[in-house]
Design a protein around this nucleic acid. Structure first.
Length: 263
DNA sequence: ATGACTCAGGAACTGAGA
């Protein structure tokens, strides 16, 4: 079973690319972020035509997450626990059933947090604390669980081409990395790092200053696995070539292959 | 030294992104 995540930076601007990528990768479940539209504007029919069930949690203008699944959704729930006043569309959780049992998947768009001396960074840190509480609760279920999305966290220096340039950035500040470690230390496995310790594995290249041409990238899109998912990890990868397509997102898809029969 | 790009919203620009 292939499960992927991709920050598309507007699903309406990226529809052709998304359909082309789905045709070549053929994932069973896809987590999308930054769809940048309300639910009604999501091009749901285009994906349903390919056999996907669609769940959307959007908002006007920015943010927004979605899930595509060839398996039907047993349950879908939007919003991250811990702050009823938080209206930003950044979290969508679903449960699907396979022949081998359930799989729980979360599509998440963790706040950027810049500039760090503002309430935006406070929001990011609190969001990470809420995510940790959520993961702690769900791990008790002992299910195959995937937290997939744009975490806006550079976990280590090896995850940036030029780590010094990110030293004071909300994506790489010590406090950000500490909170991310607290999350992963609950027992979550970074799928990409589980299969490779290579350098120069990136998922984002800025549109500006020729970052892509210089391979000046960072690895901020992650798939974190519960022990029950990690036990079934067959492979993982980054579809880097998509960044070279016409009119690309600044992020590329990341995927895992789990030894779970889809249907 | 500086700016550099792409989106949405809404009709010239700003905010957001990272």
């Amino acid at each position: 079973m292939l499960i992927a995540t991709w920050n598309v930076n507007s699903i309406r601007q990226r529809l052709d690319s998304a359909l082309a990528w789905l045709a070549e990768r053929s994932p069973d479940i896809v987590c999308l972020q930054e769809i940048k539209c309300v639910d009604e504007a999501f091009p749901r029919e285009a994906f349903e035509g390919l056999g996907y069930n669609v769940a959307v949690h959007g908002q006007k203008g920015f943010n927004g997450v979605a899930l595509l699944s060839k398996l039907p959704f047993d349950e879908v729930s939007s919003g991250l626990m811990g702050d009823e006043a938080d209206v930003q569309a950044r979290f969508l959780e679903a449960l699907v059933s396979t022949k081998a049992g359930v799989v729980r998947v979360v599509s998440l768009y963790l706040p950027n947090g810049n500039p760090p001396d503002t309430e935006k960074y406070t929001y990011k840190i609190k969001w990470m604390e809420r995510l940790t509480r959520f993961a702690h609760e769900r791990l008790k279920l002992e299910e195959p669980l995937l937290l997939a999305g744009d975490f806006n966290v550079i976990p280590a220096a090896a995850d940036a081409r030029n780590p010094a340039a990110w030293a004071a950035d909300a994506l790489f500040l010590p406090q950000t990395r500490e909170k991310y470690l607290t999350l992963t230390n609950l027992g979550l496995t970074d799928a990409i790092r589980a299969v490779s310790d290579a350098s120069y594995l990136y998922t984002f290249w800025d549109y500006q200053a020729g970052a892509w041409q210089k391979n000046n990238g960072i690895r901020i899109d992650h798939i974190l696995l519960s022990p029950q998912a990690a036990d079934r990890l067959r492979g993982a990868g980054i579809d880097k070539h998509v960044r070279a397509w016409e009119k690309p997102s600044d992020h590329v898809p990341v995927y895992v292959d789990l030894a779970i029969e889809g249907r």
